[in-house]
Amino acid sequence: MRVLTPFGAAAGDTRPLARRRPSLAGLRIGILDNSKPNAIALLEQVAEGLVARAEGARIVRWQKPGASLPATIIDEVAAGADVVLTASAD
């Protein structure tokens, strides 16, 4: 028999990602902590590892009040960092 698929169409618009930089030297490495347990431990350790590979780089930190809330500070993060790390997990 013929049946209709239940998914409907979805928004498929895409936006270009920022060009990558060949080096992280001297950059502000942002961390957006979503307040999940140990998120800051994970992100800081990665950021420290990046700083060790990039002369003059430094870490800048932000925290969302909760993982399930939108990042209302996203413009501030974008302006205050050159690259940003964030994570989603439990």
Binding site: M1, R2, V3, L4, T5, F7, G8, A9, A10, G12, T14
Partner: peptide, 14 residues
């Protein structure tokens, strides 16, 4: 290019 499947008819077991 990512687009969700549009409404469409498909064949299923009778």
């Amino acid at each position: 290019a990512v687009r969700g499947p549009a409404d469409e008819a498909v064949t299923a077991p009778d």
